[in-house]
Simulated scan of single mutants.
Amino acid sequence: MVLGFCQFLKDLIKDRELLFRLSINDFKAKYAGSIFGIIWAFVQPLITILVFWFVFEMGFKSVPIDNFPFILWFVPAYIPWIFFNDILMSTSNCLYEYNYLVKKVKFRVSILPIMKIVSAFFVHIFFVLFIFLIFGMYGYGINAYFFQSFYYTFALIVFCMGLSWAVSALSVFFKDMTQLISVILQIGFWITPIFWNADKMDSWIGKLLKINPIYYIIRGYRDSFLYGVPFWHRINTSIYFWMVTIILFVFGTLIFKKLRPHLADEL
């Protein structure tokens, strides 16, 4: 297992230029036919944030949460969710989208889901910097804990790698996978503490909802931008998250490896 992972990293480093080129082309291709092009990748999330700001700050007059304006409490949780959502939706269809590469004998197909993750990362890094900006607009200075968010970005990427391999391969054989993922993500958005505080729930409900690994990421971003809590202070949840991530990585790798020989025939 360890040797296999090391070999994977070596192959990834070896193909880094190809991966980067494919990711850039994929990012551009999403909006190639529109007038404003790649601007749309940033406009839709910005409009959503603006709507939430207007509704909750101006309309509902939401009270501060832990002495922070609602929008500052909401945005650090919403941004990683957008990243996670984008990765799952795009990787679920990536083998269909690039079926001509899948059918090439010498092409390493496992790079395609990673390409989608890198493509989504371009947008995510912009919005992480946007969080820096919006906190500055509200008068909060940048501190060292802000940069801890990059650790949680890395953690989310690793978590999504195994998941994306499993989802992309299974989607070829289960045609409704993309629709199923869309439904799961809609439910997941509301059961993940993005709009609400899990610590305010009944103890047993809060503990149940915290089983969700994405909770670790959401709270981590808030710890970085709001509360200034170092990630090593969450040692129990960190261990749990990385155990789940490793299991998922192994699971996704095995599924992709088992289904890889049959992908071209199905496509």
Rank of each mutant, 00 (worst) to 15 (best):
Q7W: 04
Q7Y: 05
F8C: 04
L9A: 06
L9H: 00
L9C: 08
L9I: 15
K10Y: 12
K10S: 11
D11G: 05
L12H: 00
I13H: 12
I13K: 12
I13N: 10
I13Q: 05
K14W: 07
K14N: 14
K14I: 02
D15C: 13
D15Y: 09
D15T: 14
R16A: 05
R16E: 07
R16M: 00
L18H: 02
L19F: 02
F20D: 02
F20N: 11
F20R: 11
R21F: 15
R21T: 15
L22Q: 01
L22K: 03
L22F: 05
L22W: 01
S23V: 07
S23F: 07
I24V: 15
I24P: 06
N25I: 00
N25T: 06
D26I: 00
F27M: 05
F27P: 06
F27V: 07
F27E: 04
F27Q: 08
K28T: 11
Y31D: 03
Y31H: 03
Y31L: 00
A32P: 15
G33M: 08
S34K: 07
S34D: 09
S34N: 07
S34F: 12
I35G: 01
I35S: 05
I35W: 00
F36G: 14
G37E: 03
G37S: 09
G37N: 10
I38Q: 12
W40T: 06
W40Q: 07
W40H: 07
W40N: 07
W40R: 06
F42Q: 02
V43M: 09
V43F: 09
V43Y: 08
V43R: 03
V43P: 11
V43A: 11
V43G: 04
Q44K: 13
Q44Y: 05
Q44I: 11
Q44V: 09
P45V: 02
P45D: 06
P45F: 01
L46N: 06
L46Q: 04
L46S: 11
L46D: 06
L46K: 03
L46H: 07
I47W: 14
I47Y: 13
I47M: 14
I47C: 11
T48N: 05
T48P: 05
I49K: 03
I49H: 02
I49V: 14
L50D: 11
V51N: 10
V51M: 12
V51S: 12
F52D: 01
F52T: 02
F52E: 02
W53M: 09
W53D: 04
W53A: 04
W53E: 03
W53V: 07
V55C: 07
V55D: 09
V55E: 10
F56A: 01
F56Q: 01
F56I: 03
F56Y: 08
E57I: 08
E57L: 09
E57Q: 11
M58G: 05
M58R: 13
G59H: 03
G59R: 04
G59I: 09
G59A: 13
F60N: 14
F60H: 11
F60R: 15
K61R: 15
K61W: 06
K61L: 13
K61C: 05
S62P: 04
S62Y: 10
S62D: 04
S62V: 09
S62H: 13
S62C: 03
V63T: 15
V63G: 00
V63S: 14
V63W: 00
V63C: 00
I65F: 05
I65W: 00
D66C: 04
D66I: 03
D66K: 13
